[in-house]
């Protein structure tokens, strides 16, 4: 069975028990605050890559604005927690909802576009979000960021060390992956993949493709918002710089390296690319170079990534609006 086929199902869920047990025991073996903080970050990126995978991998819509929705979630949580004093357990779902609403608002006018044009519109949206965050000082405090976000409290006890955050993100990851796995193995997920594979055939099978594409976008952005809320309550400080285009590209690189269109791929990619730069000081200093080289290498030599479904990047559905093999026109002066 190819790795990309490895979906947690009712008949094979026990395969994941040893993995879960190892993850539960992990902090007891490594009692290093530093290693745990890396693990927490890997956990956040698992949500980000897995949610981006819903649009880019399963539905074949290339969104390049994921960090913007991540940021919207983080700022929603930060503002609600610091201004209204809402607890983490309320800001978490609300951040997802707000990011999802933004996702729907962006998707409605732009999902007529496909491929490269969709990618470019989402990049434009990404930059606009960044600039608005930076300049709407009344809401976001602009370049100063929002500090002093309270940590999550469990049973009245606020989390202090990374140990608590580790178990929290582990639980969140299990829930998110569980939800995503149920979605992609259902009629809804089949409709997403059908749209990716052949939109016209999907339509003539009765799939309302436009509505399903919006749904796919909303699911992806909802979970990006969830990741953002966790980030805000973990870092306890948010600033616009954390959610720039570079961040989108980092998430995208993790997704592509891990592999699109499978549940395992994004998890592998996120863990690998969060951990790798920490392996040595040299790699950490050249983090961008490492990411860039890995991305190029994967695209050139293994476009399906570690555990992705082959051929999604080159898929016909992923091509641009300009479905023409040769030149698009004449560059005439």
């Amino acid at each position: 069975m190819p790795l990309y086929d490895f979906v947690p199902r009712r008949d094979n869920w026990y395969v994941w028990l040893p993995v879960l047990a190892a993850l539960l025991l992990f902090p007891l073996l490594v009692r290093s605050e530093y290693i745990l903080s890396i693990a927490v970050y890997a956990g956040i990126y698992i949500i980000l890559t897995s949610s981006l995978n819903i649009t880019n991998g399963y539905t074949g819509l290339f969104s390049f604005g994921h960090a913007a929705f991540y940021g919207i979630g983080a700022y929603t949580a930060a503002i609600l927690a610091t201004r209204l004093g809402l607890s983490f357990w309320l800001t978490l779902p609300l951040a997802g909802v707000v990011a999802g609403i933004f996702g729907a608002a962006i998707a409605l006018p732009t999902l007529r576009l496909t491929g490269i044009f969709l990618a470019l519109v989402t990049i434009g949206f990404q930059e606009i979000t960044f600039l608005v965050t930076l300049n709407w000082i009344g809401l976001t405090r602009g370049p100063m960021g929002i500090p002093a976000i309270p940590p999550p409290a469990i049973g009245g006890v606020a989390l202090s060390g990374n140990l608590g955050y580790y178990y929290l993100i582990l639980a969140l990851d299990v829930i998110v992956l569980g939800l995503l796995s149920r979605i992609v193995t259902s009629r809804v997920g089949r409709a997403f993949v059908a749209i990716r594979e052949d939109e016209l055939a999907a339509q003539s099978a009765g799939i309302p493709t436009f509505r399903m594409k919006i749904l796919s976008f909303v699911i992806a952005t909802f979970f990006a918002g969830i990741a953002g809320a966790f980030f805000a309550h973990h870092a306890r400080f948010v600033s616009a710089d954390s959610f720039r285009l570079d961040e989108t590209f980092a998430i995208l690189t993790m997704l592509i390296v891990g592999g699109m269109g499978s549940l395992v791929g994004p998890v592998l990619g996120a863990v690998l690319l969060v951990v790798l730069p920490e392996a040595s000081r040299f790699l950490a200093e050249y983090r961008g170079v490492v990411y860039g080289l890995i991305l190029i290498g994967v695209i050139l030599f293994r476009p399906e990534g570690l555990a992705g479904v082959p051929g999604i990047i080159q898929a016909r559905g992923a091509l641009s609006r300009v479905d023409k093999p040769s030149g698009a026109g004449e560059p005439v002066g």
């Binding site: 009629r187 409709a191 993949v193 594979e197 055939a201 099978a205 799939i207």
Partner: peptide, 22 residues
């Protein structure tokens, strides 16, 4: 116009889309 990276069974399930309500 087949779904290249779907199995034969999955094609049929997609074909049943209209008769399902999940």
């Amino acid at each position: 116009r087949i779904f290249r990276r779907m199995t034969v069974l999955e094609h049929l399930l997609v074909g049943r889309h209209l008769h399902q309500r999940t």
